[in-house]
Design a binder for these strands. Structure first.
Lengths: 335, 335
DNA sequence: AATTTTAAATTAAACGTTTACGTAAACGAT
DNA sequence: ATCGTTTACGTAAACGTTTAATTTAAAATT
């Protein structure tokens, strides 16, 4: 059995309160008493019981982190950034995967509630999220990451997908592409919506019409990438493709390779994220680099600010991180 | 403020004990009392405080999971398997990254200890791990994942790296390769050791000598992959390369592309894991598929068995999951 | 010398559960 | 009628902390 604060107090010949104050530096204690306490702690290999501490102090130093899937390259980096920042600040994280499923999501939320998390960082799935209002105590800060609910105003830090999509589409148009396919994620997500907006704005600003069939939404899987590429290729005369996430690219490339469609000769490709493999794929991919790790850090910092009340309570805090385009050989200049 | 069991007991007009027993189904309660309790719980939106529960029951339903880095494709899948299995069984996981650094590792362990985790699942870094004996209560089960400490007998579930390396090297030898480079991870890891053994056994069984310089150890990064490939190419006349992990492959391919060394014409390549991108890389890679997700599940199951004492206490439980080779176009037949 | 102020440590009451123990009522058997 | 037994529930003591309220001792003031 691990030793308790009581054991330490007896060994040091002082009261429990004094030991607690020494540990937490929460009131003045003379140096020799301090020394005795430290010696006793050392001797007994004392390690504070954070469960008891949490029960009493009503804070758990725990942050609930919910992402669609931890095995995603993007979200694992976001999580890495969160974990790192939280750890440095004395918090730890409880991980849950929603798998973009509302039931799973609510399930995890119930667990989080039961665990009395000090803060929730979540990437919401499709659908209503007003239930969050009643789910957690009003005092529990919430930060949405990468996506935010469309029916619920809340603090969030996301990637500037509207802007980056605009930039990519605009770039492709300037290079002479007129029919640009986009394979994006689920409809009903803030991220997908932003991509639509960027896409449309770019077409509009260039005075070009676009075909509805050029945009395909669906799961973040290589299968969906394969199928959606097939649809676009079969139904349109797209000369370029832009993707929301990397599994889609992989499926898409599998289709294109299968059909012996040459990149970038017959079709140009732009992907998302800067995962290393895009440098050695066939061909190396032009990408828009999303600051995933930085998103995690920024969101964690916002969360810490909210917990420590360093931030206005009645304001909605929104952060939108910008991307950079990395040119490689998967895009052809048509002019 | 969330409502407590006391609120429920008052609302239902019964004692706290009865409410607790209803919740936990730990003793017979008449149906109408049960109904009153459920009604009160519903009305008050009662959600048990797991902190209080943990303090009293001395179990936290929490598993500490430590991996080198959650952003690794391999470990994120392992973690996914663990999370899934644990969640299904009412446990949740606390995540920590060791970054293959002993200080970070011990730091995380201290946090875990403080959190009174019910079990530890860790992938140990290089170096002594006897300190684990004193770190956690003797009753806390430990399962090592993917690697195990070389100085400490403990339950573990790992991948059969010795066997898979043997198979790959043997296969390459049968295809006429005599000088096979291997780029592996840190020396002093059980995994690296296993790979050495498999490599040597394959050479020995085929009656071939091998060059020390063919095997390069180092970090699991693309930089290390680049550098180690350079070393092997410059110092040996290797006709094939085998890698421990995918970041290394990427660095290696960058080097080979840079030097315009054609794959598989001039050099054959075999990588690890079945990450989707290996299907669309240039060229598509022959790989040995490691069951990462399954490793997570198996390890979690072992942990649950240990927690529930469904497993012999004084026996060391070792599981070694086997791999499969997926042939693609990065290997050339020299015969 | 008596009183007030200050400093340093102690006491004890929470925090929200679980659970060993206790009890009251109902029932059968003698 | 009395006495165990059983059934169904209640009481209260933990679990290991934090912290408000209090005490004690020493120092400063009158």
């Amino acid at each position: 059995m691990p030793s308790t604060i009581k054991d330490v107090s007896i060994a040091a010949g002082v009261s429990i309160a004094t030991v607690s104050h020494v540990i937490n530096q929460t009131r003045y204690v003379t140096d020799d008493v301090k020394a005795k306490v430290y010696a006793a702690m050392e001797k007994l290999d004392y390690n504070p019981n954070s469960i008891a501490r949490s029960l009493r102090s009503q804070q758990t130093k725990t942050i609930g982190v919910m992402v669609p899937s931890i095995r995603s390259l993007f979200y694992s980096r976001v999580t890495d950034g969160i974990e790192e920042t939280m750890r440095e600040n004395g918090y730890h994280i409880i991980l849950a995967n929603s798998h973009d499923d509302r039931d799973r999501e609510m399930d995890a939320l119930r667990t989080f509630k039961s665990l009395r998390i000090d803060g929730l960082m979540m990437c919401p799935s499709v659908g209503e999220h007003t239930y969050l209002k009643n789910m957690l105590p009003a005092s529990t800060p919430v930060v949405f990451i990468d996506r935010y609910p469309l029916d619920y105003e809340g603090d969030h830090v996301v990637i500037d997908l509207s802007g980056s999509t605009y930039d990519v589409i605009n770039l492709l148009i300037k290079k002479g592409h007129q029919k640009i396919g986009m394979i994006t994620g689920y409809k009903g997500l803030s991220s997908t919506k932003a991509r639509f907006e960027g896409y449309q704005a770019a077409y509009q600003d260039n005075g070009l019409p676009y075909d509805e069939e050029l945009i395909q939404s669906g799961a973040y899987t290589s299968d969906a990438g394969y199928e959606n590429t097939k649809k676009i290729i079969e139904n349109t005369d797209a000369t370029a493709l832009f993707y929301a996430d990397d599994p889609m690219v992989i499926g898409s490339l599998l289709y294109l390779h299968e059909k012996k469609i040459r990149i970038p000769d017959q079709i140009s490709i732009v992907s998302c994220n800067d995962y290393e493999w895009t440098r050695i794929s066939n061909p190396p991919l032009t990408i828009v680099k999303k600051p995933s790790y930085q998103l995690g850090i920024k969101a964690a910092e916002l969360m810490l600010d909210k917990i420590e009340k360093r931030v206005e309570k009645d304001k909605i805090h929104k952060f939108c991180l910008s991307t950079t385009i990395v040119m490689r050989s998967s895009v052809k200049d048509l002019i």
